[in-house]
Computed example of a mutant assay.
Amino acid sequence: MDSLLIPVLILVLVAAGVLLVVRAWSRRGERSRPAAPPQPDTDSAELARVSAARLNQEQHRRIYALIAQGQAMAAIKVYLEATGEGLRASRDAVAAMAAHPQPYRAPEAASPAVPDEDDVPQRFPYRYRAIASKGDVTREVSSNMLNDEIYGRIRTLAKSGDTEAAATALTRHSDISMKQAREFIALLDD
C-alpha cells in the first residue's frame, strides 16, 4: 500500500498543476480579446436627431421622400452617399430617422431648440397622419404641423375630458374646421 501512495500523490499534483495552467491560459485569452463596441440603439430618437443633422436640406427631403414611399434601400443609399458612413451605420441611421421623423434644421438651428409654444405651430417637412375610429366611423387628420408629441398632448387632453381644448389644439395644428376637430376628438375620448 505504501508503494502506491507516492505515485498517486504525484499523479494528483500533476493533475492539479495542469488544471491551474489551463485556467490561467483561458483567463489570459479572455483578457486579450477586445471588448465588443456598444451597439447604438437603432430606434433611438437621439440617433435620428444626430443623423438628420448631418444632412443638407435637399438630402433630408430626398431621404424622407424615399422613406415615405417605402424605398428604404434607396434611402440608405442616399444617406450613405451623403455622409460617407458605412453601410451598417447608414442602415441604422435611416431606420432611426424612419422611426423618429426629424424636421430639417438649418446648421444654425441645430443646437437644442426651445420647445415651440402651442400658439405657433411648426411646419414639418413630412405629413403626419392621425386616425381615430369607433365602430364603423373613422376619421383621419393629415397635417405637416402635427407630430407624435403634439398628437400625444391632444390625446391626453381628450382623454382627460377637456375636449374643447383638444379640438382647439387640433385645429391649430391642422387645416380642419372646429366641427371636424370635435368629431375627431369625440372618437378619442374613450
Rank of each mutant, 00 (worst) to 15 (best):
residue 7 P to F: 12
residue 7 P to V: 12
residue 8 V to L: 13
residue 9 L to I: 14
residue 10 I to E: 13
residue 11 L to Y: 06
residue 11 L to V: 06
residue 15 A to K: 08
residue 16 A to D: 10
residue 20 L to R: 02
residue 23 R to L: 13
residue 25 W to P: 00
residue 27 R to A: 13
residue 30 E to L: 14
residue 31 R to N: 13
residue 38 P to F: 06
residue 40 P to N: 00
residue 41 D to M: 10
residue 43 D to A: 09
residue 43 D to G: 14
residue 49 R to Q: 05
residue 56 N to F: 00
residue 60 H to Y: 11
residue 62 R to Q: 09
residue 62 R to M: 03
residue 68 A to C: 01
residue 69 Q to D: 09
residue 71 Q to K: 09
residue 71 Q to M: 06
residue 76 I to F: 02
residue 78 V to F: 02
residue 78 V to W: 01
residue 82 A to R: 12
residue 82 A to H: 14
residue 85 E to T: 12
residue 86 G to W: 07
residue 91 R to Y: 03
residue 91 R to T: 11
residue 92 D to L: 10
residue 93 A to W: 00
residue 95 A to Y: 08
residue 95 A to L: 15
residue 95 A to V: 15
residue 96 A to C: 14
residue 96 A to M: 14
residue 101 P to F: 00
residue 107 P to M: 06
residue 111 S to T: 05
residue 113 A to D: 08
residue 116 D to Q: 09
residue 117 E to Y: 03
residue 128 Y to M: 05
residue 129 R to L: 08
residue 129 R to T: 07
residue 134 K to C: 06
residue 136 D to G: 03
residue 137 V to P: 05
residue 139 R to I: 09
residue 142 S to H: 07
residue 143 S to N: 12
residue 148 D to K: 11
residue 149 E to Y: 12
residue 150 I to W: 01
residue 150 I to D: 02
residue 153 R to T: 03
residue 155 R to E: 03
residue 156 T to N: 11
residue 157 L to K: 04
residue 157 L to Y: 04
residue 163 T to V: 13
residue 163 T to F: 01
residue 170 L to K: 03
residue 171 T to F: 05
residue 172 R to I: 03
residue 174 S to D: 08
residue 175 D to I: 03
residue 176 I to K: 06
residue 178 M to N: 15
residue 181 A to I: 13
residue 182 R to A: 12
residue 185 I to H: 05
residue 188 L to N: 07
residue 190 D to S: 11
